[in-house]
Nucleic acid binder design. Structure first.
Lengths: 335, 335
DNA sequence: AACGATTCGGCAATCGATTGCAAGAAATTT
DNA sequence: AAATTTCTTGCAATCGATTGCCGAATCGTT
């Protein structure tokens, strides 16, 4: 009735009176082993609380069962993962991956050299990688994508890019946002957001296009950092330096829009009467604000689904094309 | 000028004309190797884009460099990771762990048997685990904690529990919330929330205590699921069945409080004039609502910091006690 | 009872890096 | 020049599971 601690398959094999190979096959339900011995070995394993070592298994079969989710902090070092957009996307990816039996390995990376991604994918820790946001790293993504297949990126699609991306049509989205505030009567439109990232720049371009199509002047571009406090500060500064405020604001993200509304309201500017504000993303909290935020909706649920789906197909060897999803205008109270 | 692909340390060793052992030592900056060969080998490695395989290393060293973050969905299967509280905590943990050089492995687990946690920690995939929320799994946590040291839990501390926990004093928090609505004039207080989890039950207990101390009747307890829609439905039902509504609501979480405010406002009940509402958590979005939410603040930033700190100390072999953090009342517009 | 057809299960190599031990080379001492 | 010390480096075992190949056992059939 003694229970020596079983640390590996060999120990179990000794106790069961069979060879390690047999134990391995029994535990993995290989059809090669008779039902009888299989049950016997499984019972023994359970009784001794034995579980095969995953690392050894991983090494041998060259798989990890984990997917890396990477947040590259290219131009905005101070941005934290706690940013609502990342966080929302992350939750969705976690749900999606868990459902498919994969673990999620989260990394926040500050790209200091150009081989951060090489390092990561070559480290063999994950079976594939999902990058959230291109930031200013498109070149790196392209370079790695050429040799490392299981890689998908949330972000813009640009004709000629080499990496597989999933994202909404940011140009169209920016245009819709601008068009909407114009329709609501805005004539002097400003764009709030940091345009060092590819996606944001695309949104700005769409916005510009709508304005010029309507015969209106190009927007003021107000660069805004992503942390809450910085955003408030930048917006306040803008309000102080400009005597005539815009009557329409296209914000690059919901978070920026919310900061803008909050600052403007504090200064006695009425939203949407004096200025119409449109956000981008349609995060869950967009409908909770006062006034509820009009925004360009990116369907993050199907976005996350697509990311995982494409990645798994790539892991399986398939070659997949990028997906561009149509954005959608959601009109609430802020415009 | 040919570059055969280097797949392992042995290949590199062959090219460099040394033994695998030497390469390993050179790459890991072991002092045993002369500066000259060390530099030479590192240069070769860089030139060929070689990186040692992490899985093999892990197997040998018996470490993974990853910490598991687990969200057990005990009584609430339908709850998703996308829940704002989890997500917030997750982001903070990610920041904290990244800073300390660990990767974060995220798992959402539905505890179907009682050995889900055994399976997890024995799988050898992580060096330690952080569990977010006790749910109804305290017994399991205690059982595993007795034999597996690197384990910390976000949640309530209950005298006699065996696992190391970090969390705020939920009883005190519940009491503060109730006391506050009483101070604001409430006489009929209701508690909104699902009390199957340990933490929520503690909050309810605190709430009850405050009421009885004030000579007021015990609260109506309205069980509320955690998904948005369910919450709204439950609250609407409650309003329909009860002719006299409470004049004070202690909500088990901010999300519930926000749902309550939203439903009540739609029905013409004024917050805070007709009914005072207090949430719990002080999520970032609590100050964004209309009216901004009064709530019991749990300092998640130091919470996350503590979780990681204790875990790493446990990994290092230390034995650590649980931490109970004081909650704090934040009065905003809803009370 | 003997034969062939299957099914089981063992042996040993393999995945790739780490590390204790000891041998060989270089530097120092006498 | 021989002996001793100090550096370097190589050898080979190890971490723990997987799997191709082949021999052994079992079964059914005649």
């Amino acid at each position: 009735m003694d229970k020596p601690h079983i640390r590996n398959i060999a120990d179990l094999a000794k106790i069961a009176g069979v060879s390690p190979g047999t134990v391995s096959r029994a535990l993995s339900d290989s059809g090669m082993i008779s039902q009888k011995t299989r049950d016997r070995i499984k019972a023994l394993a359970r009784e001794h609380g034995f579980r095969p070592n995953v690392m050894a298994r991983n090494l041998r079969i060259q798989k990890t069962g984990a997917i890396g989710v990477i947040i590259p902090l290219g131009h905005e070092v101070r941005q934290h993962i706690s940013d609502p957009f990342f966080i929302t996307m992350l939750g969705l990816l976690a749900d999606e991956l868990t459902e498919r039996g994969y673990d999620l390995m989260l990394s926040r990376i500050i790209p200091e050299d150009s081989d951060w991604l090489d390092k990561y994918v070559d480290s063999g820790r994950v079976d594939g990688a999902i990058i959230i946001g291109q930031s200013d790293q498109s070149a790196v993504l392209d370079a790695v994508a050429e040799r490392y297949k299981p890689l998908v990126v949330w972000g813009s699609y640009d004709a000629g890019q080499l990496h597989c991306s999933v994202g909404s049509d940011n140009v169209a989205g920016g245009r819709m946002a601008a068009q909407h505030v114009i329709d609501q009567g805005a004539r002097r439109v400003a764009f709030f957001g940091d345009i060092r990232g590819v996606e944001m720049r695309a949104r700005l371009n769409g916005c510009k296009k709508a304005l010029s199509d309507a015969g209106l002047p190009a927007p003021d571009v107000v660069p805004i950092q992503l942390t809450r406090e910085d955003a408030r500060q930048a917006i306040a500064d803008y309000c102080n330096t400009n005597t005539t405020l815009p009557d329409g604001i296209v914000a690059a993200t919901d978070v920026i829009a919310m900061a803008a509304i909050s600052v403007l309201t504090e200064r006695g500017v009425r939203v949407p009467d004096d200025v119409r504000v449109v956000g981008y993303d349609d995060l869950p909290l967009a409908e909770q604000t006062a006034p509820p935020l009009s925004t360009i909706r990116q369907d993050l649920v199907t976005g996350a689904h697509n990311l995982v789906d494409l990645l798994l197909r790539r892991i399986a060897g398939e070659d997949t094309a990028s997906v561009v999803m149509p954005p959608e205008l959601v009109v609430r109270g802020s415009s």
